[in-house]
């Protein structure tokens, strides 16, 4: 999956209840895998942040915090890359419709920064239509603009 469809079966997969206290296992399992593969501190920081943001979006915006809904998390790891897919049970959204949180009129709004952080810290972020599934990849040799600075 990291290089297209070379690994169709994920290395890890979880179906989590849409509750804020139910999401930790995904993050923990992905991070312990990265630790095992010796991903450095900045890589783990980036992946943790992006995963946290994507899970929060799936919980709050996708699943409307409905505990009867689930969040499906899958991940693929290689020695130099990790791809994470997070899917909610919502209707999806158009990511291009999310306003720029750094614009002067939005800078004091308390929300709307999660996607920007995901794109800044990961190498690739893709929203799969209808927008209820995000696939993001971190590559050690070409991290996101924030992770490489």
């Amino acid at each position: 999956m990291v290089n297209g469809t070379s690994h169709p079966e994920p290395h890890g997969e979880l179906r989590l209840p849409a509750r804020s206290d139910g999401l930790k296992p995904a993050e923990q399992q992905i991070l312990s895998e990265l630790e095992r593969l010796d991903f450095d501190d900045s890589a783990r920081f980036a992946v943790r942040l992006a995963t946290e943001e994507a899970l929060a979006n799936a919980l709050i915006h996708g699943n409307n915090e409905d505990p009867n809904r689930t969040i499906h998390v899958r991940w693929w790891v290689e020695p130099n890359a990790v791809t994470i897919e997070i899917q909610d049970e919502g209707e999806g959204f158009d990511p291009s419709s999310v306003p720029d949180p750094t614009a002067e009129e939005n800078i004091e709004l308390p929300s709307g920064r999660g996607i920007m952080l995901m794109r800044s810290f990961m190498s690739e972020v893709e929203f799969i239509p209808p927008g209820n599934c995000v696939r993001m990849t971190y590559r050690i040799d070409s991290p996101g603009p924030a992770a490489s600075s």
């Binding site: 943001e53 929060a56 004091e108 308390p110 929300s111 999660g114």
Partner: peptide, 16 residues
């Protein structure tokens, strides 16, 4: 060690 965009939102609310 870590914070999220939700924490930034809370800081903005505090600032306001």
């Amino acid at each position: 060690d870590h914070l999220s965009s939700a924490a930034l939102g809370t800081l903005i609310t505090i600032n306001n």
